[in-house]
Protein backbone atom coordinates (compact mmCIF):
# COMPACT_ATOMS: atom_id res chain seq x y z
CA UNK A 1 0.00 0.00 0.00
CA UNK A 2 1.31 3.23 -0.93
CA UNK A 3 0.59 6.14 1.14
CA UNK A 4 1.47 9.35 -0.08
CA UNK A 5 2.42 11.46 2.75
CA UNK A 6 1.54 14.96 2.59
CA UNK A 7 4.47 17.21 2.15
CA UNK A 8 5.54 18.69 5.46
CA UNK A 9 3.92 21.91 6.12
CA UNK A 10 6.08 24.84 5.42
CA UNK A 11 7.82 26.04 8.52
CA UNK A 12 6.01 28.79 10.22
CA UNK A 13 7.36 32.06 9.19
CA UNK A 14 10.20 33.13 11.42
CA UNK A 15 9.28 36.14 13.43
CA UNK A 16 10.92 38.99 11.79
CA UNK A 17 13.67 40.48 13.88
CA UNK A 18 12.85 43.92 14.93
CA UNK A 19 14.30 46.65 12.94
CA UNK A 20 17.02 47.38 15.53
CA UNK A 21 18.51 43.85 15.20
CA UNK A 22 22.13 44.83 15.78
CA UNK A 23 21.23 46.54 19.04
CA UNK A 24 19.33 43.51 20.45
CA UNK A 25 21.98 42.13 22.91
CA UNK A 26 22.29 45.52 24.55
CA UNK A 27 19.23 45.25 26.82
CA UNK A 28 20.18 41.62 27.67
CA UNK A 29 23.66 42.65 28.76
CA UNK A 30 22.07 45.46 30.62
CA UNK A 31 20.02 42.97 32.62
CA UNK A 32 23.02 40.71 33.27
CA UNK A 33 25.38 43.14 34.94
CA UNK A 34 23.67 43.16 38.36
CA UNK A 35 24.00 39.36 38.41
CA UNK A 36 27.68 39.58 37.56
CA UNK A 37 28.33 42.21 40.17
CA UNK A 38 26.34 40.32 42.81
CA UNK A 39 28.28 37.13 42.02
CA UNK A 40 31.58 38.93 42.33
CA UNK A 41 30.55 40.52 45.60
CA UNK A 42 29.37 37.16 46.96
CA UNK A 43 32.60 35.50 45.84
CA UNK A 44 34.61 38.20 47.57
CA UNK A 45 32.53 37.77 50.73
CA UNK A 46 33.06 34.01 50.54
CA UNK A 47 36.83 34.41 50.39
CA UNK A 48 36.70 36.91 53.23
CA UNK A 49 34.63 34.47 55.31
CA UNK A 50 37.22 31.77 54.60
CA UNK A 51 39.76 33.80 56.52
CA UNK A 52 37.69 33.24 59.68
CA UNK A 53 38.12 29.49 59.47
CA UNK A 54 39.93 28.02 62.46
CA UNK A 55 43.50 27.39 61.38
CA UNK A 56 43.88 24.07 63.21
CA UNK A 57 42.35 21.58 65.59
CA UNK A 58 43.98 22.84 68.74
CA UNK A 59 42.82 26.37 68.02
CA UNK A 60 39.24 25.10 67.98
CA UNK A 61 39.49 23.93 71.57
CA UNK A 62 41.71 26.70 72.89
CA UNK A 63 40.38 28.65 75.85
CA UNK A 64 38.11 31.49 74.90
CA UNK A 65 39.24 34.72 76.46
CA UNK A 66 36.93 36.95 78.46
CA UNK A 67 38.47 40.34 79.22
CA UNK A 68 37.60 42.87 81.86
CA UNK A 69 39.07 44.99 84.59
CA UNK A 70 39.35 44.90 88.34
CA UNK A 71 36.21 46.98 88.90
CA UNK A 72 33.81 44.07 88.39
CA UNK A 73 33.73 40.29 88.21
CA UNK A 74 34.84 38.90 84.86
CA UNK A 75 32.73 36.02 83.56
CA UNK A 76 34.86 33.49 81.69
CA UNK A 77 32.01 31.01 81.21
CA UNK A 78 33.15 28.14 83.39
CA UNK A 79 34.20 30.48 86.19
CA UNK A 80 33.99 34.09 87.29
CA UNK A 81 36.82 36.06 88.85
CA UNK A 82 36.86 39.34 90.73
CA UNK A 83 40.21 40.95 91.52
CA UNK A 84 39.93 42.41 95.02
CA UNK A 85 43.34 43.88 95.63
CA UNK A 86 46.86 44.09 94.21
CA UNK A 87 49.77 44.38 96.64
CA UNK A 88 53.49 44.79 96.03
CA UNK A 89 56.16 43.31 98.29
CA UNK A 90 59.93 42.82 98.43
CA UNK A 91 59.56 39.40 100.07
CA UNK A 92 56.64 37.02 100.46
CA UNK A 93 55.96 33.88 102.45
CA UNK A 94 53.22 31.42 103.30
CA UNK A 95 51.06 32.98 105.97
CA UNK A 96 50.18 30.69 108.86
CA UNK A 97 46.53 30.11 109.63
CA UNK A 98 45.26 32.35 112.37
CA UNK A 99 44.24 29.76 114.93
CA UNK A 100 45.08 28.65 118.42
CA UNK A 101 47.87 26.57 116.95
CA UNK A 102 49.56 29.40 115.13
CA UNK A 103 51.94 29.90 118.05
CA UNK A 104 53.40 26.50 117.27
CA UNK A 105 53.62 26.97 113.51
CA UNK A 106 57.13 27.19 112.05
CA UNK A 107 58.34 30.69 111.41
CA UNK A 108 57.39 32.01 108.01
CA UNK A 109 60.18 31.73 105.45
CA UNK A 110 60.22 34.81 103.25
CA UNK A 111 61.44 34.69 99.66
CA UNK A 112 63.03 37.84 98.31
CA UNK A 113 62.14 38.85 94.81
CA UNK A 114 64.58 39.29 91.96
CA UNK A 115 62.59 42.41 91.11
CA UNK A 116 59.31 42.87 92.94
CA UNK A 117 56.48 40.55 93.99
CA UNK A 118 53.09 41.43 92.53
CA UNK A 119 50.45 39.65 94.61
CA UNK A 120 46.96 39.62 93.13
CA UNK A 121 44.16 38.83 95.59
CA UNK A 122 41.00 37.58 93.95
CA UNK A 123 37.73 35.74 94.40
CA UNK A 124 37.09 32.85 92.04
CA UNK A 125 33.79 31.01 91.60
CA UNK A 126 33.36 27.97 89.38
CA UNK A 127 29.99 28.21 87.66
CA UNK A 128 29.11 24.75 86.37
CA UNK A 129 31.33 21.98 87.66
CA UNK A 130 34.30 21.25 89.87
CA UNK A 131 37.45 22.85 88.47
CA UNK A 132 40.85 21.72 89.63
CA UNK A 133 43.75 23.28 87.77
CA UNK A 134 44.50 26.98 88.17
CA UNK A 135 47.17 28.53 85.97
CA UNK A 136 47.94 32.22 85.80
CA UNK A 137 50.35 34.60 84.15
CA UNK A 138 50.99 38.30 84.32
CA UNK A 139 51.27 40.32 81.14
CA UNK A 140 53.43 43.21 82.31
CA UNK A 141 52.23 45.53 79.55
CA UNK A 142 55.80 45.66 78.24
CA UNK A 143 55.62 42.70 75.83
CA UNK A 144 56.70 40.12 78.39
CA UNK A 145 54.49 37.56 80.13
CA UNK A 146 55.54 36.19 83.54
CA UNK A 147 54.46 32.91 85.13
CA UNK A 148 53.06 32.85 88.65
CA UNK A 149 55.41 31.49 91.28
CA UNK A 150 55.29 27.84 92.31
CA UNK A 151 57.41 28.49 95.39
CA UNK A 152 54.53 29.09 97.80
CA UNK A 153 51.98 26.54 99.04
CA UNK A 154 49.26 29.08 99.70
CA UNK A 155 48.95 30.60 96.25
CA UNK A 156 46.33 29.43 93.79
CA UNK A 157 47.76 26.82 91.46
CA UNK A 158 50.62 25.54 93.59
CA UNK A 159 49.01 22.47 95.15
CA UNK A 160 45.85 20.70 94.07
CA UNK A 161 43.14 23.30 94.03
CA UNK A 162 39.49 22.54 94.16
CA UNK A 163 36.90 24.98 92.94
CA UNK A 164 33.48 23.50 93.75
CA UNK A 165 30.75 25.04 91.60
CA UNK A 166 28.91 27.97 93.10
CA UNK A 167 31.22 28.48 96.07
CA UNK A 168 33.38 31.60 95.94
CA UNK A 169 36.99 31.07 96.98
CA UNK A 170 39.30 33.90 97.98
CA UNK A 171 42.98 33.45 97.34
CA UNK A 172 46.02 34.97 95.66
CA UNK A 173 48.52 34.46 92.89
CA UNK A 174 52.04 35.91 93.12
CA UNK A 175 54.31 37.04 90.30
CA UNK A 176 58.01 37.88 90.46
CA UNK A 177 58.58 40.67 87.94
CA UNK A 178 61.42 43.13 87.23
CA UNK A 179 60.21 46.57 88.33
CA UNK A 180 61.08 48.24 85.05
CA UNK A 181 59.04 45.71 83.05
CA UNK A 182 55.77 46.75 84.72
CA UNK A 183 53.80 49.15 82.53
CA UNK A 184 50.10 48.27 82.52
CA UNK A 185 49.78 44.79 84.00
CA UNK A 186 47.02 42.36 83.06
CA UNK A 187 46.56 39.12 84.98
CA UNK A 188 45.61 36.15 82.80
CA UNK A 189 44.16 32.95 84.20
CA UNK A 190 42.73 29.68 83.05
CA UNK A 191 41.00 27.23 85.36
CA UNK A 192 40.36 23.81 83.94
CA UNK A 193 39.41 20.37 85.18
CA UNK A 194 42.30 18.00 84.74
CA UNK A 195 45.43 18.42 82.70
CA UNK A 196 45.37 20.45 79.51
CA UNK A 197 43.29 23.50 78.79
CA UNK A 198 40.94 22.15 76.14
CA UNK A 199 37.70 24.11 76.19
CA UNK A 200 38.68 25.84 79.43
CA UNK A 201 37.64 29.38 80.25
CA UNK A 202 40.29 32.09 80.30
CA UNK A 203 39.96 35.50 81.93
CA UNK A 204 42.19 38.53 81.38
CA UNK A 205 41.80 41.15 84.06
CA UNK A 206 43.37 44.55 83.60
CA UNK A 207 44.64 45.66 86.98
CA UNK A 208 44.27 49.33 86.11
CA UNK A 209 47.68 50.30 87.43
CA UNK A 210 49.94 52.43 85.28
CA UNK A 211 52.08 55.55 85.23
CA UNK A 212 52.67 57.37 88.52
CA UNK A 213 50.16 55.27 90.44
CA UNK A 214 52.04 52.10 89.51
CA UNK A 215 55.41 53.67 90.31
CA UNK A 216 54.14 54.77 93.71
CA UNK A 217 52.83 51.28 94.40
CA UNK A 218 56.18 49.69 93.47
CA UNK A 219 58.18 52.22 95.51
CA UNK A 220 55.89 51.60 98.46
CA UNK A 221 56.29 47.82 98.27
CA UNK A 222 55.87 46.14 101.65
CA UNK A 223 59.00 44.60 103.18
CA UNK A 224 57.28 41.27 103.79
CA UNK A 225 53.84 39.96 102.88
CA UNK A 226 52.15 36.83 104.23
CA UNK A 227 50.07 35.17 101.53
CA UNK A 228 47.04 33.52 103.15
CA UNK A 229 45.79 30.10 102.09
CA UNK A 230 42.74 30.02 99.77
CA UNK A 231 39.52 30.24 101.73
CA UNK A 232 35.95 29.29 100.82
CA UNK A 233 33.41 32.05 101.32
CA UNK A 234 29.91 31.71 102.74
CA UNK A 235 27.38 31.98 99.96
Amino acid sequence: MITVSAPPPPPPPQPQPPAGHAAAPEPARGRRWPTVVTSLVLLALLMFAQSFRFPNDSAVTEPMVASGDASAAVDAGSFTVKVDEVRFAKAIGDGAEDSGLSDFAPETEYIEANGVWVVVFMEVTATEKQLTTFESRLDSGDENVYASTSWLYNTFGSVDDGFPPGIPIKGAAAFEVPEKALKDPVVQMTISSGPGQRLAGEAHVKLGLSGDELKKAIDGAEETLDVPAPEMQKV
Binding site: I111, E112, N114, N144, V145, A147, S150, W151, V177
Partner: peptide, 19 residues
Protein backbone atom coordinates in the same frame (compact mmCIF):
# COMPACT_ATOMS: atom_id res chain seq x y z
CA UNK B 1 67.65 25.75 91.07
CA UNK B 2 68.66 29.39 91.46
CA UNK B 3 71.60 30.05 93.76
CA UNK B 4 69.45 32.65 95.56
CA UNK B 5 66.91 29.90 96.48
CA UNK B 6 68.92 26.66 96.52
CA UNK B 7 66.14 24.58 98.12
CA UNK B 8 63.36 25.42 95.65
CA UNK B 9 63.19 23.80 92.23
CA UNK B 10 62.69 26.06 89.24
CA UNK B 11 60.28 24.78 86.60
CA UNK B 12 59.99 27.86 84.40
CA UNK B 13 62.41 30.63 83.44
CA UNK B 14 60.90 34.11 83.33
CA UNK B 15 61.49 36.25 80.26
CA UNK B 16 64.66 38.33 80.09
CA UNK B 17 65.63 37.92 83.74
CA UNK B 18 69.28 37.20 84.54
CA UNK B 19 69.60 34.39 87.05
Amino acid sequence: VFTRQPDRSVFELQPEVNE
